[in-house]
Write a protein that binds this DNA or RNA. Structure first.
Length: 211
DNA sequence: CACCAGGCAAGTA
DNA sequence: TACTTGCATGGT
């Protein structure tokens, strides 16, 4: 499996080149973005982020003060805006109440504790937590997503019904714990999924052909 | 018109 | 435990 994963990474990197994923000014932008993009096209999430930025709302202080209903209005372009406003509020409330509004201090917890605390927040599941761990806290945690399942499944590299955690283990136990590499790999998998591994059509001229 | 996007929680059996 | 459903806008 180790060689297989490295081969996949090499092929995707050769095809797409280095991807500058999740360019953001700070950790809060990444965390909020991770919530806004849940089951949502990144373009729509990005619009909402730009709007928050433009209105000066992208800070722990501002987000803790704004009413949930007003927040939902500001992020409506990304869809699921009412539930996402609640989720952002839950996240911010956790930082304010347990870390004195200091996001950096929250993100400096050890990886296990940080992941568990993130998962304890309603609205943050395994993928969102791992995105925050990898892209904001810079921990060597592999982010699994729908495309990861779909692509590996389509190449018969995993069994049906494998869990998130088990699939994550496959990557983390067979690859060096490298933040930069994990960041690239997840991005490459998403780009591959969007281009070559849609639900309906079979992969065609996919860089992973015959893997 | 249908289908999907960088998920998650709550409800059901 | 293992499905199912609600959440919602905007692009193709």
């Amino acid at each position: 499996m180790k060689e297989r994963l490295l081969e996949i990474y090499r092929r995707l990197f050769d095809f797409f080149g280095p991807l500058n994923w999740w360019p953001a000014n700070d950790e809060l932008e990444i965390a909020v973005g991770a919530i806004l993009t849940q089951n949502t096209n990144w373009r729509n999430a990005e619009k909402a982020i730009r709007n928050l930025k433009q209105k000066g709302l992208l800070s722990v202080n501002a987000l803790s003060k704004i009413k949930e209903e007003d927040l939902s209005y500001e992020i409506r372009s990304c869809g699921y805006y009412r539930i996402k406003a609640k989720r952002i509020k839950n996240f911010i409330k956790h930082i304010v109440e347990r870390f004195d509004s200091d996001l950096k201090r929250f993100l400096s917890l050890d990886t296990e504790s940080l992941r568990n605390e993130l998962l304890s927040i309603k609205g943050i599941g395994p993928e969102t937590a791992d995105c925050i761990l990898l892209y904001a806290a810079k921990r060597p945690v592999f982010v699994v997503d729908e495309y990861t399942f779909r692509i590996l499944r389509r190449h018969n590299l995993i069994w049906d019904q494998i869990s998130y955690e088990d699939l994550q283990k496959i990557f983390m136990e067979n690859l060096p714990a490298d933040v930069e590499m994990f960041s690239q790999f997840h991005a490459l998998i998403v780009e591959t999924g969007k281009r070559f591994c849609k639900k309906k059509p079979i992969c065609k001229s996919c860089p992973l052909e015959g893997i």
